[in-house]
Design a protein around this nucleic acid. Sequence first.
DNA 1: GTGGGACATAAACATTTGTTTTAAACATTA
DNA 2: TAATGTTTAAAACAAATGTTTATGTCCCAC
Lengths: 222, 222
Amino acid sequence: MAQTDTVTRILDTAEVLFAERGFAETSLRNITSKAKVNLAAVNYHFGSKKSLIQAVFARYLDPFTERFHAALDELEAKYQGEVIPLEELLETMARSVLEVPAERNSLKVFMKLLGLAYSQAQGHLRRYIQEHYGSVFTRFAALVRQATPDLPDAERFWRLHFMLGTVIFTLSGLDALRDIAEKDYGEHVSVRELIRRLRPVVVAGMNAPLPEPVGDALPAAG
Amino acid sequence: MAQTDTVTRILDTAEVLFAERGFAETSLRNITSKAKVNLAAVNYHFGSKKSLIQAVFARYLDPFTERFHAALDELEAKYQGEVIPLEELLETMARSVLEVPAERNSLKVFMKLLGLAYSQAQGHLRRYIQEHYGSVFTRFAALVRQATPDLPDAERFWRLHFMLGTVIFTLSGLDALRDIAEKDYGEHVSVRELIRRLRPVVVAGMNAPLPEPVGDALPAAG
DNA sequence: GTGGGACATAAACATTTGTTTTAAACATTA
DNA sequence: TAATGTTTAAAACAAATGTTTATGTCCCAC
């Protein structure tokens, strides 16, 4: 086995298994046996299972943040202080997200991992991501703010997260949904196809009219 | 300990712990010790951990489907064959979702569970839910179809899931989001508040213009 | 060539997991 | 009261988990 492709094989195998079954449900023995690597190699190279999980994310998020920053730089240069339209911002983000895993043909895995990062308890993960990659999102949020000056800050905050939910939820649960869709419509949807469908929905959601100020008819709930 | 409040205590404790930490991360010993109940009681009353998980869901979904069916009955009676407007349908669904856990003051738990049901691998759960509660959603989807006759079937299918993603993702990750929001804006958002904000976004998303037929500029991805 | 660092291997370790088993307590009915 | 079915209790079980150790192997600098 050449030098340290062991590390790569562990990461390659781990990300697939994590995406398929979740973190807690994937044992180190699952990973190492499928990767044809010794069990101890994980703790040797990564230190612990937690660190392995973070390393799996870093391999996606590091290139992503770099690319996304660069893309935003370009965009700011292009508009030279002018306000960047919302569509351009969303488009740029989508492109950045798509570019990275495209290199490794594993967008599906990336999306599943993102979904898990949000839903799964795994407190350490959310902290890790927020800590290491929060700055790009802050920058993005600031640009979105300029692009949507009529939106109250709180409203924009929530809508951004609504849209994030739409995208992550859809793309991370894609396999299951695709099964249903194929059964119902026979047509096989690609990720690009889905992105194409998502775009107008996301834009419309961001530009939706403001909610009525008060007094809806819904029942109270704790 | 009176007759079989053991079962109730197990369910009450299990749903909270499941919602907080996920299924795999919650051990039976966690549940039984916190519930002050013997370990063996779980296997005695429920048979297995899997069945316990399903029972936790059933306690929410059984009343929900019943209520939702009833609400749809009312709606159909009210409109007497006329097409039910989309807003009414969405409103009715929201109301039905909110009513059930409101009785037990645990909407947050319910939403977290829903999120887990989607994201977590747990194949048995998705199958269980689809099998036992799929019919209500089918009925709902048929009504939405009548309410949005201009939408191609496939488009409507995906948009419904987009919106489902928005709602579930937001409400299930609510605690984390709420923390951020409070830090940024100091304002504490209630669930009702969030629903009020969600509504126009969801409606706008469903009514968004159709996507451009082809040829977007996004890079290819597998 | 030899010593030393980097890595691989196999075995063992201590916990924790879900599940069973055995026995005792309880309640209900005859 | 005796007998029966139901529920709780404590302990034990086998399996699986993350992690560590001890040994072996390779390769490169000296």
